[in-house]
Design a protein around this nucleic acid. Sequence first.
DNA 1: CCATACAGGACCGTTTCAGTCCAAAAAGAC
DNA 2: GTCTTTTTGGACTGAAACGGTCCTGTATGG
Lengths: 160, 160
Amino acid sequence: MLRVSRLADYATVVMAFLAQSPGGSRTAPDIAAATGLEIPTVSKILKRLVRTGLLQSQRGPKGGYQLAQQPEAISLAVIIEAMDDQPMGLTRCSQFLGLCANESSCSVRTNWQRISREIYRQLSAVTLADLVEDMSASRQNPVVTFVSGQSSREGERLGR
Amino acid sequence: MLRVSRLADYATVVMAFLAQSPGGSRTAPDIAAATGLEIPTVSKILKRLVRTGLLQSQRGPKGGYQLAQQPEAISLAVIIEAMDDQPMGLTRCSQFLGLCANESSCSVRTNWQRISREIYRQLSAVTLADLVEDMSASRQNPVVTFVSGQSSREGERLGR
DNA sequence: CCATACAGGACCGTTTCAGTCCAAAAAGAC
DNA sequence: GTCTTTTTGGACTGAAACGGTCCTGTATGG
């Protein structure tokens, strides 16, 4: 199984809503109503997004949340990362050291690290603007290459 | 958080061991000893790998497990998939229908589906042979383009 | 001064996953 | 033919992680 946590999933929905909503800040209850999520849950997500600098907040009446940057400047990777404090990595032994005896000689581990890094790069190449964009509509100029673009352009080979 | 389940992680190690071990089958206790995992755990993993056709098994004395195909023909994606019965997908709403009210109009959901598909493709491009290969040694001919290769060659644009 | 809204942290409940065990069947060996 | 070795399938258990909730405090504007 390979999966994004539910909180990270929700976070992308929340961010997408804020990206689409017109200028000015939205309150947590507003966002909850719009996304169909519970207020405490949305609130928790919003707090983390503020702490990591993805959102700006304003207290008091007329307060609320808004994007700290343009949708084009916010990547999926940072949104996902904002939801957890652990370092990014698909497998445990590629995240933490000292879990396995034959760590030093394990080619699987080092290769998993490369793969994790590559997938992270892919997620970094997708922006909030991409996520909001309705891809179902046929377009004349498919400029955005989305996930696959970045690495191919640079001819990356997993760090070799 | 984006992570592979621990069982899937172990499965890659088990498969890597079998790929590296000389011809003939290995018993579950053998594999457990070699990988440092518990016998029941390894056994559970082996059963699933057999059921999905990645391994061949032989009962009785002189029995054991061995790869059903060449390491070059087994991808990371199928190993990971073998460990769970759920359909592949990074987010819930991209896996199952009917979880969200505004499913039909949600661009986030459809875009997540594309991203999931793309990452699946990346994992399909990595074979067991790649995983076993020691990448730390400097090589003269870096032919294997690993994760990033496949999609760039085909100029994929997430299904557009 | 009061109402509104965010901030931070603590806390609990539940699901999910990893891990274990047991009875059964198959396949050689003697 | 029987005994031993090994896989098979399922059920069961324990624990940890995660999602979700709540409470107290602080800032802001009317």
